[in-house]
Design a protein around this nucleic acid. Structure first.
Length: 479
RNA sequence: CGGGGCAUAGUGAAACGGCUAUCACGAGUCCUUUGGGAGGAUUUAUUCUGAGUUCGAAUCUCAGUGCCCCGACCA
């Protein structure tokens, strides 16, 4: 698509300053706004509708595998938070505290949940008695607070919306299976709905969640070559059930500690959509998740034949698509075209006096800019086809980007060279040693993203120390 | 948490210690328009907060607060 460089741009050029481009999109596409409190953003209707679509899909998938929704309190007593040592060490620096009730200072302060492992564990300790009670597969949709220093809308805010699933099981096998099952639901959501290919694998010891036995992750590549963790799923073993004394009587009437998992996705996914798909025209939303899939722009609003035809078209499409009609009379069509492109609406339908005579409308696709005249009688099936194609093309474009920005290296020098070219994923062999991992981080600025499920052997030796390599690891600079 | 920078309308800027704080864009209202960013009329500010210096402060001083960039930490 042409860049139309002559127009006065309202958004920063994506190649000039990606960070600025990103915040421009958030504001100009009307997704969210800043508030008076640093790190706390107001999510506006258009942005929230994206979250609602994600939530609706995920919630349905969760329920298919037996997840039940609950709601737990916002506040966690300090002693509860302190029960699991690794966990508190991981979260302590970014916990917000409630210290007063009205004017009175509280004897025991409360933390505002940064995540609810401890609360769930405490309650599971009460609720679980026998093997007959298990498993308990609970989830809550809520917000959490982490007192971050650097913040950026959707990507890192001090309060964010998410879902956190917490489960208890009577055997390790079942818990491990569920951990991976949830990860695969995340993968399907991100690939099929958000149209972003993922890299899935296991986090290294250094990168795993505070208190977890295993942390699994789905990683996504952004337009600028940086990597964003899009979802995680943890297997806890008995790390929480021991300190929290979550015991049950098994079939042999012996006391046993439960096996636990937790897993989550957040409004960060909206940031992923923006940064994976967006371009110089603005946001680009995959049809499956777009709050508005089709925008109808009638040309010449004073023409009654046109407006009544446009209304008719709206009524037809409204039965099977998320569609809106732009009747603003204080903007020219050209302005509206740019406006809806910036908001990432996948398909625009133009209908004007000429089209009415031909019994047709013009369909414009956001990702390619292609314009096609479609007869009004064929509109429903044609539109369905076009939206499916856009969804597929957007996924393929990201997949190509991922493949082009993944490279294998056999030495640290090569690693540094590649990462400085703004490469996305770097594949390199690793011996499993923490020191080697730390050295890569220090020398390249890249962290291990994960040990991918699909292993391949590009060499026998660790890229740092040259000793026998244990795994192929994907590395990259992260958000 | 270290190092640096900035604070004037919704946004971006201008204004020597001195006249009614100026301009562009945006937004609101009204009229005329509408096939790739329309035109006219009109409206739109406790110059971040508090104190000080001065006949007089957006401008100088001090303190506070907020924001941005660079490192360390992080979903």
């Amino acid at each position: 698509m042409n860049d139309n460089k002559n127009y006065v741009r309202e958004i920063t050029n994506i190649e000039d300053d990606f960070a600025k481009w990103y915040t421009d999109i958030v504001i100009k596409a009307d997704l969210a706004d800043y508030t008076d409190v640093k790190g706390f953003m107001a999510i506006k209707p258009y942005g929230f509708a994206i979250w609602e679509n994600i939530k609706e899909y995920a919630d349905k998938e969760f329920k298919k595998v037996g997840v039940k929704n609950v709601y737990l309190p916002l506040l966690i007593p300090e002693d509860l938070l302190n029960k699991e040592k690794d966990h508190i060490e991981g979260f302590a620096p970014e916990v917000a505290w409630v210290t007063h009730g009205g004017a009175q200072e509280l004897e025991n302060r409360f933390c505002i949940r940064p995540t609810s492992e401890t609360l769930f564990s405490n309650l599971y300790g009460k609720w679980v008695k026998s093997w007959r009670d298990l498993p308990m597969v609970y989830n809550q949709w809520c917000s959490v607070i982490r007192w971050e220093k650097e913040t950026k809308p959707f990507l890192r805010t001090r309060e964010f919306l998410w879902q956190e699933g917490h489960t208890v099981h009577d055997n390790a096998e079942e818990a491990k299976d569920l951990t991976l099952k949830m990860l695969s639901i995340y993968r399907e959501l991100i690939e099929k709905k958000l149209a972003i290919p993922v890299l899935q694998g296991e986090k290294t010891e250094t990168e795993k969640f505070a208190g977890a036995e295993n942390t699994y992750t789905v990683e996504t590549l952004m337009h600028d070559g940086k990597i964003l963790q899009a979802g995680t799923s943890h297997y806890f073993g008995q790390n929480f059930s021991r300190p929290f004394k979550i015991k049950f009587l098994n079939k042999n009437e012996e006391e046993e500690y439960v096996y636990q998992t937790s897993w989550g996705i957040s409004t960060r996914l909206i940031g992923a959509i923006i940064m994976a798909h967006g371009d110089n025209r603005g946001l680009k939303l995959p049809p499956e998740i777009a709050p508005i899939q089709v925008i109808i722009v009638p040309i010449s609003l004073s023409n009654e034949v046109v407006t009544s035809k446009a209304n008719e078209l709206f009524d037809v499409l409204n039965k099977s698509f998320r569609v809106e009609i732009d009747k603003r009379d204080n903007y020219s069509p050209g302005y509206k075209f740019n406006d809806w492109e910036m908001k990432g609406v996948p398909v625009r339908i133009e209908i004007g006096p000429k089209d009415v005579l031909e019994n047709q409308c013009i369909i414009v696709e956001r990702d390619t800019g292609d314009k096609t005249a479609i007869k009004l009688d064929d509109i429903d099936p044609e539109l369905r086809k076009i939206l499916n194609n856009i969804q597929k093309r957007m996924f393929d474009a990201c997949k190509n980007n991922k493949e082009n920005r993944t490279s294998s290296v056999n030495s640290l020098d090569e690693f540094v060279e590649r990462i400085n070219e703004n490469q996305g994923y770097i594949k390199a062999m690793w011996c499993g040693d923490k020191e080697c991992e730390a050295e890569i981080r220090e020398k390249t600025g890249a962290k291990s993203r994960c040990v991918p499920f699909e292993q391949e052997k590009i060499s026998d030796k660790c890229v740092v120390c040259g000793k026998k390599a244990k795994h192929l690891v994907f590395w990259g600079r992260q958000y």
